[in-house]
C-alpha cells in the first residue's frame, strides 16, 4: 500500500498561520477561567461574571463600535464624493503621486500629529490665541483626549479616506464605470440616476468586504486611541492591554476575558466575511 506523503507546505502553514492564533486564544481562554495564572486557584466563572456585571466591556465595545462606524462612514462617503467629482484631475501626473502620500504616514505619527494640532497648547490653540479667540490655553475646546473622541475620529478619517479614494479610483477604472455611465446617459439617464444606479452600486458592491474589514481594523486600533483617547471609556485594544498590564492580579484575568470576547467577535466577523463562497472578488 502506498503511504500518502505529508504535505510539508500545509504543515508549515498550520505551524505558522494557525498554531499561534490557536495557542493565543486557548491561553487567554484558560486564563479567563482561572485555570492558569499566578494568583488563580482553578476553574471559576468569577472573572466572566465580574466583567459582564461591570459593563466595562460593553461600554468599551459600544464606544469602539461608534467611533469605527462614524470614521468609516465619513471616510467612505468622502472618498466616494472625491472619486465622483475629481476623478479626472486625480489621474493627472502630479496629483496621482500626491494622493498616495498619506499612505506613508503610520497610525502613531497620525496620532502624534493630531495631538500637536488640536491639543490645548497645539497649533490651532496658538492661532486662536493670536487671533484673539482665546486668552488662555484652557479656553481652547477639548479636541483631543475628549469624550466625543473627535481627535480619534479625525485621525482615523485622515488614515483611511486616502486609501478608499485610491481603491474607488481603481474600481472605477477596472469596472469600466465610465463606459457604463456613457451608456446609461445615451439611454436617457440623468446625472443623478447615473450616480445612484450605476456609480454607487458598482463601487459599493465591489468593495464592501474591504469596507467591513477596515471597520474591524479600526475596532481594534491601538496607537491612535492610546495617544488621543480618554481615561474612560476606552477603545477595546487599549482597555485589554491596560487590564492585562495591571498590578491587580484579578484584573489580569478580567483583561483576558475581554480579549477572549474581542477575539470571538472578530473571528465571527471573519467567518461571515470570508466563509467559503464562490466568486468573491476583492476579498484580500
Amino acid at each position: 500500500m502506498k503511504i500518502k506523503k505529508p504535505n510539508i507546505g500545509i504543515l508549515l502553514f498550520v505551524l505558522v498561520g494557525v498554531v499561534p492564533f490557536a495557542a493565543a486564544f486557548v491561553y487567554a481562554l484558560l486564563y479567563s477561567f482561572g485555570v492558569i495564572g499566578v494568583a488563580n486557584n482553578g476553574f471559576t466563572f468569577q472573572f466572566w461574571e465580574s466583567v459582564l456585571a461591570s459593563g466595562t466591556f460593553f461600554t468599551s465595545l459600544r464606544y469602539s463600535f461608534m467611533i469605527a462606524l462614524v470614521a468609516v462612514l465619513i471616510s467612505v462617503g468622502g472618498a466616494l464624493w472625491i472619486t465622483l467629482k475629481f476623478r479626472e484631475q486625480l489621474e493627472k501626473r502630479f496629483l496621482s503621486f500626491i494622493i498616495y502620500l498619506p499612505l506613508a504616514i503610520p497610525g502613531i505619527v497620525t496620532g502624534f500629529f493630531t495631538f500637536q494640532l488640536f491639543s490645548k497648547g497645539g497649533f490651532f490653540a496658538r492661532i486662536s490665541h493670536k487671533l484673539g479667540f482665546i486668552t488662555e490655553a484652557s479656553q481652547f475646546p477639548d479636541l483631543v483626549n475628549d469624550g466625543l473622541a473627535i481627535g480619534i475620529i479625525f485621525s482615523f478619517i485622515t488614515m483611511i479616506m486616502p486609501f478608499f479614494v485610491l481603491l474607488f479610483l481603481n474600481v472605477y477604472k477596472n469596472e469600466r464605470v465610465e463606459e457604463l455611465s456613457i451608456l446609461a446617459q445615451s439611454l436617457g439617464a440623468s446625472a443623478n440616476q447615473i450616480t445612484q444606479r450605476v456609480f454607487l452600486p458598482i463601487l459599493i458592491k465591489k468593495t464592501w468586504v474591504l469596507i467591513v474589514l477596515y471597520f474591524i481594523f479600526l475596532l481594534g486600533a491601538y496607537e491612535v486611541p492610546l495617544i488621543l483617547g480618554q481615561e474612560s471609556p476606552q477603545m477595546l485594544s487599549v482597555l485589554i492591554i491596560q487590564e492585562i498590564k495591571q498590578y491587580d492580579l484579578d484584573k489580569i484575568s478580567e483583561g483576558y476575558v475581554v480579549a477572549v470576547l474581542y477575539t470571538l467577535i472578530v473571528s465571527i466577523a471573519a467567518i461571515v466575511l470570508f466563509l467559503p463562497k464562490k466568486n468573491r472578488a476583492y476579498a484580500n
Binding site: F21, G220, Y256, V266, A270
Partner: peptide, 16 residues
C-alpha cells in the same frame, strides 16, 4: 489565515 490577519496585533501579542 484570516483569523490572525484580522485580529489586533497588540491583543495577539498580549495573548502570545
Amino acid at each position: 489565515a484570516y483569523f490572525p490577519y484580522i485580529l489586533a496585533p497588540v491583543v495577539f501579542a498580549a495573548c502570545l
